[in-house]
Design a protein around this nucleic acid. Structure first.
Lengths: 88, 88
DNA sequence: ATGTGACTTATAGTCCGTT
DNA sequence: AAACGGACTATAAGTCACA
């Protein structure tokens, strides 16, 4: 499992733990929301500096982002919004 | 201590352990020889993909590259003033 | 709330060198 | 063997509109 996949998985995991959205994390780490999305989908090859910012925003050590997911791990579910009634 | 500095330190450490030169590692990881030098001097902001290749060449897990140096560890030699960090 | 394609600008990363 | 420079090219960084 490559670094990108690990980071994607951990980002979703840690974000879910914090109960924070992509947008929220984006704000904390001072990156664009779509960039978070891209990283979580393994589309982007982030740099070390970006990892630093993400780890800091999530209040974990950078190493946490490279943790190997358990063999039987699913992709952490996307955080389900509380439920959003069609707010017309 | 930021990610760059950790990687710089660990790269030197692991490379010394393997008794391999920068050029040798560059060959193994299939990156340019000058790039290893730049990373070890914290001038370059490596990507996750590159970290994967370096870890693989050094036969360690990627997480190893982000190990925190002991408090009393020597700092890697001369930081070269070359390129401006990503400043954000 | 998230994913994606299209886009521009900054810089990651290479290749030629010299010290 | 390694630090460093200049000039490149490939791609990451960063933003947007819309699905």
């Amino acid at each position: 499992m490559d670094g990108r996949a690990r980071i994607a998985w951990n980002l979703r995991r840690l974000r879910a733990l914090s109960g924070i959205t992509q947008e929220g994390l984006a704000g904390e780490a001072d990156v664009d929301r779509t960039y978070i999305s891209g990283i979580e989908n393994r589309s982007f090859n982030a740099t070390v500096d970006i990892l630093d910012r993400l780890a800091s925003a999530l209040k974990v050590d950078v190493q946490e982002l490279l943790t190997v997911p358990p063999a039987n791990a699913d992709q952490p579910p996307n955080q389900r919004p509380g439920r959003k009634p069609n707010s017309r």
